[in-house]
Design a binder for these strands. Sequence first.
DNA 1: GTCTATATTTGGATAGAC
DNA 2: GTCTATCCAAATATAGAC
Lengths: 201, 201
Amino acid sequence: MSGNDARDRRAERNLASRREIVSAAWAAARAEGLAGLSMRDLGSRVGMRAQSIYVYYPSKHAIYDAMFSEANQEILDRISAVPVSGDPVELLRRYTHVYLRFCNEDAVRYQLLYQRNILGFEPSAESYALASSGLEMIRRCLRACGVTSSRAFDVWTAMISGLAAQQMANEPGGKRWLRLADELTDMYIARYAPAHSKEKK
Amino acid sequence: MSGNDARDRRAERNLASRREIVSAAWAAARAEGLAGLSMRDLGSRVGMRAQSIYVYYPSKHAIYDAMFSEANQEILDRISAVPVSGDPVELLRRYTHVYLRFCNEDAVRYQLLYQRNILGFEPSAESYALASSGLEMIRRCLRACGVTSSRAFDVWTAMISGLAAQQMANEPGGKRWLRLADELTDMYIARYAPAHSKEKK
DNA sequence: GTCTATATTTGGATAGAC
DNA sequence: GTCTATCCAAATATAGAC
């Protein structure tokens, strides 16, 4: 029926516009800074007046939230796409590599996801759930390596997020710290999962 | 001479006002967020009109810079005050404790010093020098522990800044990650300075 | 769904009287 | 050194015509 077709087309176009807005928001944030995102600039990037954006998103915070959610979905997808075969320690290395590469690719995305400091912005509960489920995959992998205590898990997240933090703060896009990932992993495994360590005791 | 006295009193009052302004700026940043610091709010906190602040600081960035510099001086002072006696590994632990406590005390200060993300603000060269000289003390201490490679030094800073980053991001003011410092240090020393390790090989 | 027009607020910064 | 007055620019958001 043509009524349904028209409705579908409308919904399709609406969705496309929403996507275009978020995509332009990323570009704007990369150019002007995350906090410098403005509706006027964003509008001009999608060929609209700023006011028209409110048809698609009710507020600027809603756009931040869409960006936050999209980025969380992206890292979750990438982690999920890692083939789960063979040695769990090898899997841990692959996860780590994927995560660090993800952080290092985009400073603005890193800031939005991991340095909560946009004025009054708090991400929605669903976005949090995405982030947690990524963490859960890491936790399972560590368990497969023989690491079970939550202390040891916190040690792991501290080490890896520390690599990312130093890299982003001091040399964004570089690899001075990122290349230390395997070294840190070896040290960690030798201490917390000696059965999987390549180093003989 | 009374001319000099008057000049001194003026200089003194001027300095006191400058200090009061920076102190109020910290309070404002803690209340409104670092990026939310505004001259009007700051003025009202020191009992002035916003415009009068320009007598003491030529711009808002200059105030950020004063805050940045003050904070760097503070951590440098604290690190310098640590008594340098006995085992270098013990000294390393003390340094680490001082640093982590410093980070955890004040989220806004942490953000200003270690998460460079204020709009167009870039700290002055002198402030950078302060920060570098604190890092240099850590480097010397690690050398005394027998750690010499720059790779190993980067591993150390990644680990410790990772503890701080996780603590600040997930549980500011708490100690879920901070309490892992000694555990991380043990692991690190065992790997990079086995001669100083308590664990027998 | 996009526009014009506008309300409303807020920001940093300057000029000049006192 | 502080004030009043003001400039100027920019922001988010709403109302209503088309």
